[in-house]
């Protein structure tokens, strides 16, 4: 009896929690679907659903440029950071390197360091190099932070693979690179996938570096930065268009999430604190 009541109460709680989690996004979706320029308030559902706000936002906010920038930046960061992390994680986790513990400790520090602590010198460095407003200005520091997480992550994973597996390869006369490529990497593919997903999410949503380093050049702005400028410019936009812009910016990540849910969930649950 109580067991049944427990079950009902628990599921009701889960449904309630899910509604709370969904509501803010649904509220801007409803807002965005209204006809452009309509005075809006409270909970009003769109009477004549229209995509007018979306086309307005798309045209005025420069979101096509932003989407291209985000894709280039995120793609580069994820590919390069995963590659470097696999190499470093393999060496630190599997090869018997001297001082490996110290080096891993140095990488661990990067997991708790905020971008706020590095952004001032990075800005002046990029200015000196003439890179402000260009992709490398944000790509380089984002790779730097991503390899900290990635190296710790891959080292943990490679270290957990039974030594017998790679020793079998060594006996066959395979070199270190061959052991990594042909024996360990196929086994580690799921872990690499989770890492790539997590880095995609962090890089795509990063805001401070983009704001500081890309603001000068509207064409290079990432989607969060473009949205921040668009939403902050109150004269140019009404709530409906701003909401539509936010939905547009959220869409690529939501689609990726629906496609690769399991990887996202695993990544977020394992979190940045593998150690």
């Amino acid at each position: 009896m109580t067991r049944r009541r427990d079950a009902v109460v628990s599921h009701a709680l889960l449904v309630l929690a899910s509604l709370v989690a969904l509501y803010p996004f649904l509220s801007i979706l409803m807002l965005a679907l209204n006809e452009p320029g309509r005075r809006l308030s409270g909970f009003a559902l769109p009477e004549n659903p229209s995509l007018g706000n979306f086309t307005n936002a798309w045209e005025r906010g420069g979101f096509s440029d932003a989407l291209v920038s985000s894709l280039i930046i995120t793609g580069t960061v994820v590919v390069v950071a995963v590659l470097l992390s696999v190499l470093a994680g393999y060496a630190l986790g599997v090869l018997d390197l001297p001082l490996a513990k110290v080096v891993v400790g140095v990488f661990l520090l990067g997991l708790v360091m905020p971008y706020e602590a590095t952004v001032i010198p990075i800005y002046h460095q990029m200015k000196d190099w003439g890179l402000l407003g260009t992709y490398p200005a944000v790509i380089l520091p984002q790779i730097a932070f991503s390899v900290a997480l990635g190296t710790v992550w891959m080292r943990g994973y490679f270290g957990s693979i039974p030594a017998t597996l790679r020793e079998a390869g060594m006996i066959d006369g395979a070199g270190r690179m061959q052991v990594l490529r042909h024996i360990l990497l196929p086994v580690a593919a799921p872990a690499v996938g989770v890492l790539a997903t997590l880095l995609f999410l962090y890089t795509w949503n990063e805001f401070l570096l983009g704001l500081v380093l890309l603001s000068d050049n509207p064409e290079a702005r990432t989607t969060p930065v473009a949205l921040s400028f668009f939403a902050g410019n109150r004269r140019e936009s009404d709530p409906g268009t701003t909401a539509a812009a936010a939905v547009l910016v959220a869409l690529p990540v939501l689609i990726a999430y629906i496609v690769a849910q399991r990887k996202f969930v695993q990544g977020l649950l394992a979190g940045a604190v593998k150690e």
């Binding site: 889960l14 929690a17 899910s18 989690a21 969904l22 803010p24 996004f25 509220s27 801007i28 807002l31 999410l201 795509w204 949503n205 805001f207 989607t223 969060p224 930065v225 949205l227 921040s228 939403a231 709530p239 701003t242 909401a243 812009a245 936010a246 910016v249 959220a250 990540v253 939501l254 999430y257 849910q261 996202f264 969930v265 977020l268």
Partner: peptide, 22 residues
């Protein structure tokens, strides 16, 4: 439930800010 409850984690914080401003 897990997939739905994770949605706040994957949205860009700027999107979250716009939604809550409304």
């Amino acid at each position: 439930f897990r997939s739905v409850l994770f949605i706040p984690q994957i949205l860009s914080s700027v999107v979250i800010a716009v939604a809550w401003r409304w």
